[in-house]
Design a protein around this nucleic acid. Structure first.
Length: 550
RNA sequence: GUUUCGGUAGCUCAGCUGGAUAGAGCAACGCCCUUCUAAGGCGUCGGCCGGGGGUUCGAAUCCCUCCCGGAAUGCCA
């Protein structure tokens, strides 16, 4: 029997006991939680306190009554008792927990997979940075968050499509083309300057150089605007893809904004809005009535000069996503986009979707510090610290871990000096070290003639407090997945990984694993094998590697 | 002004779907390597949980209000 089944049975027995007492009320959930302090038992219920009002008795008396009517038979309960001010604390037969070790060793990295998303297909859009320059550190947070969240949702049983919306049409691409044009001409000593809204990043110069190498001075004499634009988009997209891949972030779909125009989807969407009476003209522009759907005001979708605003193709894009049949759209956007939420949701409703089909997760800004001073990130100026540089310097692990460790809606400071430092000040090494240490124990065991092939499934020598502290961490892994998935909170997983690593390190200092006692050694190896599986799997969900050696 | 995120240990942050003495990492200090990796363990120090009201048996957590900081408030993207 699995732990979850046992907990359900225990809850049922609480229900029985309450029914016998004549208190039971369906509206009050019976909750079992794991107390912070182990001396309060393995599980604890506040049920007596919650019934105090209904029963009109003191929680302590109710708790006593519940316990007296509680039938412990076949519930693996070694102790059940009442504590002030009315908690009911339960201790489970410790050996029961050991079954989870067997389950992990049997299922491997499939342990913790849930069945939450039956029939659901999520589309999760993130990064979606314009292809006008390299990714900088600020963008890395979105990449890390979206990717980690996707992995967690998949683990929880959801079907997930990761998507990047490529803004390859519109004004910024126009500026990109002009910027490349200037850089190209400068390579031939033509006296031209980057326009005011142009891009100054080194990638632009690199792109111009590549064009010069391949095509020589061809575009000095003929107009290269369209060529520069298309070449630039492709070239910069390649850079983005590589930087993301190095950061262990891959996308299933790269969706081109321009493809919307090619299929007339933007025009059709505008027509749809017009036909359904969601628009009106004013001051020579076309407005949508978003204020009728929780947006603070109406928004222009066709400017008086006849061009679209930023949101117009984006509405067509989101309609397209809905048409593709996803059951939920998750957009991960930067903190500067929060004013965008309501107008996009309004638009979703106008094109026929329910507003809760679209879920927008806002990432707060990252303040980057170097030598204790804030560094401003700007793609226009080209002065930003790029993700690619950072990853090639320290690898993806510290950065992925750092971003995953914070909840999405906290404004965080990134201390570059600390991120780069490869010492114990950097918390990622603490958890990776746990994994490497386990592997090292396995190596030692092998040289002493032990094999991991036939791990024991019965345990007779596991008694230490640290052992059970470690095992109880393993046991809750599926709950952590569910929680992180439900709350869209990758950092919950990081907290867990940390606790697991702590439990292991503590165990390590307390128990000698490899010894001449065959039974003791094999049983400990079995627990560590399970620990290693979970550590590695949990780290993989946040895109961090689990090295065997450090 | 409005919207929104935040204010918890010296620093960076968890805890916020109400629970038992408020946690972690780093920093500081002290112990622990003839035995599986000391990037480790164990311990000490450190807190009006921004202020004030309220709800509750119980509030860092929920409600109201005020203060402080960031972000957004474009026919930019």
């Amino acid at each position: 029997m699995r732990l979850n089944e046992l907990l359900v049975k225990i809850k049922n027995e609480f229900k029985n006991s309450l029914t016998k007492l004549g208190y039971f009320d369906e509206n009050i959930d019976i909750i079992l939680e794991i107390p912070k302090d182990k001396s309060n038992g393995d599980y604890s219920s506040n049920i007596a306190m919650r019934y105090a009002k209904i029963a009109r008795k003191s929680p302590l008396i109710i708790a006593k009554d519940i316990v007296e009517n509680f039938n412990k038979k076949d519930l693996f309960i070694t102790n059940i008792q009442v504590a002030n001010p009315g908690f009911i604390n339960i201790n489970l037969d410790k050996t029961f927990l050991l079954d989870t070790v067997n389950e992990i060793n049997k299922l491997g990295n499939h342990f913790g997979e849930l069945d939450e998303g039956k029939g659901e297909h999520y589309n999760i859009e993130f990064v979606s940075v314009n292809p006008t320059g390299a990714l900088h550190i600020g963008h890395a947070r979105g990449a890390a968050a979206g990717d980690s969240l996707s992995r967690i949702l998949k683990k929880a049983g959801y079907k997930v499509t990761k998507e990047y919306y490529v803004n390859d049409a519109g004004n910024q691409i126009h500026n990109l083309a002009l910027s490349i044009d200037v850089r190209y001409k400068q390579l031939f000593d033509v006296d031209v300057e980057i326009p005011e809204d142009g891009y100054n990043g080194p990638e632009i110069i690199e792109t111009a150089k590549k064009i010069k190498e391949e095509y020589g001075d061809k575009y000095l004499s003929e107009d290269g605007y369209e060529f520069f634009r298309d070449y630039g988009v492709n070239s910069l997209l390649d850079i983005l893809k590589k930087d993301l891949a190095d950061f262990r972030v891959e996308f299933d779909v790269w969706f081109s904004e321009r493809s919307l125009y090619q299929q007339n989807l933007v025009e059709k969407t505008v027509d749809y809005l017009k036909e359904h009476g969601f628009t009106y003209e004013n001051d020579g522009a076309l407005w949508m009535k978003s204020s009728e759907y929780d947006d603070e005001k109406d928004r222009v979708i066709i400017k008086s000069d006849g061009t679209y605003t930023y949101i117009t193709p984006d509405i067509a894009y989101h309609k397209n996503k809905l048409d593709r049949g996803y059951t939920k759209l998750i957009d991960i956007l930067g903190g500067d986009h929060h004013g965008y939420i309501n107008r996009l949701k309004a638009a979703i409703e106008m094109v026929g979707g329910k507003s809760d089909l679209l879920e927008i997760e806002i990432l707060q800004m990252v303040k980057v510090l170097q030598n204790g001073v804030e560094v401003k990130m700007s793609k226009r100026s080209g002065k930003a610290i790029t993700l690619g540089d950072l990853v090639s310097e320290v690898g993806p692990d510290p950065i992925r871990y750092f971003f995953a460790a914070r909840s999405l809606n906290t404004q965080m400071d990134l201390d570059l000096d600390l991120a780069i430092r490869q010492t114990n000040e950097n918390p990622v090494y603490y958890v990776q070290y746990a994994h490497a240490r386990i592997n090292s124990i396995f190596e030692t065991a092998k040289t002493k003639g032990y094999s991991l092939d036939n791990l024991p499934t019965k345990f007779t020598t596991i008694t230490g407090e640290k052992s059970f502290a470690l095992i109880s961490q393993l046991v809750i892994y599926p709950d952590v997945i569910k929680n992180a998935s439900d709350l869209r909170a990758p950092h919950k997983l990081v907290n867990y990984i940390n606790s697991l690593a702590t439990a292991f390190h503590s165990f390590y200092n307390d128990e000698q694993v490899v010894s001449t006692d065959h039974v003791k050694t094999m049983e400990r190896l079995a627990i560590l094998n399970a620990t290693k599986i979970i550590l590695k799997d949990a780290l993989s969900l946040i895109g961090v590697s689990a090295p065997n050696k450090m």
